[in-house]
Every structure is written in structure tokens, then in C-alpha cells.
Design a protein around this nucleic acid. Structure first.
Lengths: 206, 206
DNA sequence: TATGAATTTGACCAAATGGTCAAATGCCGT
DNA sequence: ACGGCATTTGACCATTTGGTCAAATTCATA
């Protein structure tokens, strides 16, 4: 009945399940604190099965980080949607907030990896990220020179944006405690809007 | 020569060294990923010695988190130094930035703990932190009603401040990579000033 | 439906882990 | 110098860990 490709191959499906489980466990316990047994349990498969698809813990972790970096780059692209700083920043901050909302585990894995000194994504930080920042720094500087933004060091603006948006993922539990429950869609949209507004007001020249 | 209290008692000195080492290891690997052996090595003492002063890993971790919470509260107090929002926020943000600078490991332990769902500091989040926020929310709302601040949800302002300041500790490695080296005192002071400026401009009514 | 490949799984292993213990050593007031 | 206490330490233990393996089972397809 089904075409051979209709039902995703067993391999694909299992890899997806294991990667999702691994992301959750790595997000919660970091690379070293995560155990293959916990990942296997979360994925609902016997432990040797995990090793069948991902021979070592490190290879599995690398596979997880690739998803994280891909998501980062995708959100980053929304910075380039406009030449107008208000639009560009709004689009970028919104994309980052949505990323934190839809993929909080990715953000946590990133944070955990960076706190360890980024042994695995160091290369990404030094090449792709560094280039992205350099390039967009130039854009921000042009906006400043054009009198559209206040005099700020572009990198400090990026840190402000990254920190705040990722916070809604990394500190989701803390926020949920303070708000007496996780943010619902409505509350999150309000937060997103206010974050955009506070940052924009903070950096756009009046 | 020395009075009996002149040289800190052996116990105090050892506990200090072990706590400092533990904080570093917990910050880098989280609770589960940290090993007693690594902590002992970092403290320069044999492993059973660590257990002599802190019977279990969890007790040691709790001791570390207490330092973290104490530091949090101390910085929080600087919010109350003035009735003027500009002054109060400047003072608070500066204190938070200084905390991230002088005690980055505390910030990382906090982040790691929150990402795990705060099993150890949950009580602090629910009682002390919640009360602090409730109380300062009222202050912020008064400022808004007095037309001194823009219309914002006070909590979102706190998240903005916490996220950004803690980022300079949690993401210190990422920042160091992008800046081709850790921030020196001068660069950090500039960053602090700009963070204060961006946030203040973002929330103070014009 | 027979067959080779892909997948699954329980049993297993060496190393690492948190923790223990008793013996040894150091410290300090008398 | 002594006696009691705090501290130190190597050896040790049960459990957990990442990883292996060979046998069993399922799958695809000819």
C-alpha cells in the first residue's frame, strides 16, 4: 500500500525520536550529566538501540548541536529582511523570541555548551558566528552613522538581544514559578511585543 | 606568633577551598555532570577529604547554592537605593553587572540549576524571589502611574535586566571568542554603561 | 516464500562514580 | 611530653556508566 518512502524509513523515524530525547536530556543535564540510559528511556528504546544509530555519546551530542546551530542560523537570517533598523530589529527579535518559544531545548543545549567553554561548537563560534557578527556590525554602524540608531557598540546590542530572547527559554522554569504557571500563548505574545518595544526604544534614535 | 584566630581554622580554610572548587566544577558541568573526584582535584585535596567536610555531593551542592542565593540577594538590595527610577535602575543594573563580573560562576550555577527545573532552589524561587518580585513590581507600577516609566509589565523589565546582566557571566566564553579575548576592565565598564543606557532609554518615559 | 540485510535486544564488560572505613598523622592545650 | 581531638589518606565497595556482542527478530524484495 504505502510507497517505500511513504512511511519514513525505520531509521529516520528512530533517529528522530532518539535525537529529540537526547536534546531534552542534554538540555536538562548537560553533556556530562546526561546518560545514554536516560536518553534511551526517554526515546522509548533499549539502550543498545541508541548506540546502533549513534555509536558514541559524543556523536549523538554532535548531532544534537547541529540541529541547534541550524536553528540559530535560520533565526539569524531574519535580521536581513529589511534595511530599516526598526523593521530589521523587530523581525530579528521576534524570530529569536519565537525560537525560544518553539525550541527551548535548543537554547538550553546552547547555553550549557557555552558554559562548558564550547568544546564542541567552538569552531562554529570562531567562523560562522564571528563572520555573521562582523558583517551585521557593519550594518548597525551604518544605521548609527545615518542617525537612525543611538551611539552604541553594535556587539552590546546583539548581546542584549541574545540574552533576553534566550532567557525566555533558558529560564522558562524560573519564569513559570514567578508567573504561577508557564506563559500561555497570549502572555508570551505580550512579552515578545514588550521586549521588541523596550529594546527598540532603547536603541533607536529619537 | 599568630593568635589562634589569626590563621583561619583549618576547617574554615579547607571548606573555603572546597566550596570554591565545587562552584567551578558545578558551574562547568552542572550538578549531575560534576564529579567529586574533579572537585577534590580542583581543591587540591584527596577525595575522602571532601567527604569529610561535606558528607554528600548534594550537601556540597546545597552549600554552593547558598552562596549563590546570598549574592543574588545582596545585589537585589541595590534596587532600593532610590525612589527615582533612573537612579534605582542604574544602581540595580550596575550591581547585577558587577556581580556577573566578579562572580560569574555563581551565575552559571544558577543558570544550570534553573535549566534542570530548580530542584534545589525551588523553595527560594517560590518564597523569597516571588516576594521580592511582587514587592518591586509595585514600586515599578507606581513609577509607571507617576508617568516616569513607559507602560510595561514590570516583570518583563526584570527579565530583561536579569537576562542581560547574567549573560555577561553565562556567555563569557562566547563573548570572549567574539571579542578575541575576555573583556578587560575597560571594555566591561563600557558594556555596563551601555547596558544601563539601553535599558534606561528603553523604559524611562521621554 | 526464501534470503540477505536491517533492526532489536538481553547479557555482558571495564572503567568511573559516590561514598566508606580504619589506620595514620597532625594539632593543641595541659 | 602527653593525651585527646581534628584531620588526612590509601584502600576499598557497590552501583552506575558508556559501550560491546552475538543471538534473535523483522523487513524488504526477488
Amino acid at each position: 500500500m504505502d510507497k517505500p518512502i511513504a512511511r519514513a524509513s525505520i531509521r529516520e523515524e528512530n533517529e528522530r525520536a532518539i535525537l529529540a530525547a537526547a536534546e531534552a536530556v542534554f538540555a536538562e543535564h548537560g553533556f556530562r550529566g546526561a546518560t545514554m540510559a536516560a536518553i534511551a528511556a526517554a526515546a522509548g528504546v533499549p539502550k543498545p538501540n541508541v548506540h546502533y544509530y549513534f555509536p558514541t555519546k559524543e556523536r549523538l551530542y554532535r548531532a544534537v548541536t547541529e540541529r541547534v546551530l541550524t536553528a540559530w542560523l535560520e533565526a539569524a537570517s531574519s535580521f536581513d529582511t529589511s534595511d530599516d533598523p526598526k523593521e530589521a530589529l523587530t523581525s530579528y527579535i521576534s524570530a529569536k523570541m519565537d525560537l525560544a518559544r518553539t525550541m527551548p531545548l535548543s537554547s538550553q543545549v546552547w547555553a550549557s555548551e557555552v558554559m562548558r567553554g564550547a568544546p564542541v561548537i567552538q569552531d562554529f563560534l570562531e567562523t560562522t558566528l564571528t563572520q555573521w557578527v562582523r558583517s551585521r556590525e557593519r550594518v548597525v554602524r551604518k544605521w548609527i552613522e545615518a542617525g537612525k540608531l543611538r551611539q552604541i557598540e553594535p556587539r552590546n546590542l546583539f548581546y542584549l538581544i541574545w540574552a533576553t530572547t534566550q532567557h525566555y527559554a533558558n529560564a522558562a522554569h524560573e519564569i513559570a514559578t514567578l508567573e504561577k504557571g508557564p506563559l500561555d500563548d497570549e502572555a508570551f505574545e505580550r512579552a515578545k511585543q514588550q521586549v521588541v518595544e523596550m529594546i527598540l526604544t532603547g536603541v533607536v534614535a529619537r
